[in-house]
Amino acid sequence: MRCTILASGSKGNCTYIAGSNGAILIDSGLSAKETLSRMTQTGCQADSIDAIIVTHEHTDH
């Protein structure tokens, strides 16, 4: 199993978790472009994502 924190803070949260059967994103508080950029930089495979789990929302975005 692999866990990569792509963002954590007041400007957004995003965690990539991958196993032998696929991967998920937990939250996706970055733009799609920034998320993909950070995934590329850390060697995460975007095409392996099976789901995005949203843990909370904000009324301003």
Results as ranks from 00 to 15, higher is better:
Thr59Gln: 13
Val54Met: 07
Asn21Lys: 08
Thr42Asp: 07
Ser20Lys: 04
Asn21Thr: 15
Arg38Val: 13
Cys3Glu: 02
Ala51Arg: 04
Asn13Thr: 08
Arg2Glu: 10
Ile52Trp: 01
Gly43Cys: 12
Leu6Phe: 01
Ala18Trp: 02
Thr42Gly: 06
Lys33Ser: 06
Gly12His: 00
Thr35Lys: 04
Ala32Arg: 14
Gly29Tyr: 08
Ile26Arg: 08
Asp27Met: 11
Met39Thr: 00
Asp60Met: 06
Thr40Gln: 15
Arg2Asp: 14
Asp47Pro: 03
Cys3Met: 13
Arg38Asp: 02
Asn21Glu: 10
Ser48Cys: 08
Gly43Pro: 01
Glu57Tyr: 15
Leu6Gly: 05
Ala46Asp: 03
Lys11Ile: 08
Ala32Gly: 02
Lys33Arg: 14
Ser10Glu: 13
Leu6Glu: 01
Arg2Trp: 12
Gly19Ile: 05
Leu30Thr: 13
Cys44Met: 09
Glu34Lys: 08
Asp27Ala: 05
His58Phe: 09
Leu25Gln: 00
Ser37Glu: 10
Ser37Trp: 09
Cys44Trp: 03
His56Ala: 07
Asp60Tyr: 07
His61Ala: 14
Ala7Thr: 06
Ser20Val: 03
Asn21Ser: 04
Asp50Gln: 15
His58Thr: 10
Asp27Ser: 13
Thr4Glu: 05
Gln45Asp: 08
Lys33Gly: 10
Ile24Gln: 01
Gly12Gln: 04
Asp47Gln: 12
Gln41Pro: 04
Arg38Cys: 11
Ser8Asp: 11
Ala51Asp: 09
Gly43Thr: 03
Asp47Gly: 10
Thr40Val: 15
Leu6Ile: 04
Thr40Trp: 08
Asp50Gly: 14
His58Ile: 06
Ala18Ser: 11
Gln41Ile: 04
Thr40Lys: 13
Asn21Met: 07
Gly22Asp: 12
Arg2Ser: 14
Asn21His: 10
Ala18Ile: 03
Met1Pro: 08
Thr55Arg: 03
Asp60Leu: 10
Gly43Tyr: 07
Thr42Leu: 09
Thr4His: 02
His61Glu: 11
Ala32Tyr: 10
Ala23Gly: 02
Arg2Gln: 14
Ala46Glu: 03
Tyr16Gly: 03
Thr15Leu: 03
Leu6Met: 14
Gly9Tyr: 11
Ala23Asp: 00
Thr40Cys: 05
Ser37Thr: 12
Thr15Ile: 07
Ala32Trp: 10
Ile49Gln: 06
Cys3Arg: 13
Ser20Phe: 01
Gly22Phe: 04
His58Glu: 12
Asp47Val: 04
Ile26Tyr: 13
Ser20Thr: 09
Tyr16Phe: 13
Ala18Pro: 00
Gln45Glu: 09
Ser8Cys: 09
Ser37Phe: 08
Ile17Gly: 00
Ala18Thr: 04
Cys44Val: 02
Ile49Lys: 06
Cys14Leu: 03
Glu57Asn: 14
